[in-house]
């Protein structure tokens, strides 16, 4: 594992973590459900994407990498739909 990849991982994962924390801050600070929902899903999905990106070098194979990416895609899909559903339910 080269140092460059290490640096990439560290960078991506750290960024991801930051997004997660940001999402949480938004969750805590924002006043009503829709805005909180907004903060949460956006930030977390980006955060997860970054983490997945950072971990790609460690998956040890194409299949593993594919799995990781599909995890992210699935999360995006369901996140979007669930957000919609909840938002509608609340409205």
């Amino acid at each position: 594992m080269s140092g460059l990849l290490h640096a990439f991982t560290i960078l991506a994962v750290s960024a991801g973590v930051v997004f997660f924390i940001a999402g949480t801050v938004g969750l805590v600070r924002f006043p009503d459900v829709p805005t909180r929902l907004h903060a949460l899903t956006k930030a977390d999905n980006v955060g997860l994407g970054l983490v997945v990106l950072g971990l790609l070098p460690y998956t040890g194979g194409l299949l593993g990498a594919l799995k990781l990416v599909s995890v992210w895609l699935l999360t995006l899909l369901s996140g979007a739909i669930v957000t919609q559903l909840i938002a509608r339910a609340v409205r």
């Binding site: 994962v13 969750l27 459900v33 949460l40 995890v71 996140g79 339910a89």
Partner: peptide, 28 residues
Amino acid sequence: RILYSRQAADCMMAAQLVGTGGIAVLLL
């Protein structure tokens, strides 16, 4: 924060939060 609000629909976000966050944690 979420659970403190005690609103059911609001709480559903918690599941969302843990879902996404949990996956990240798991992978890490």
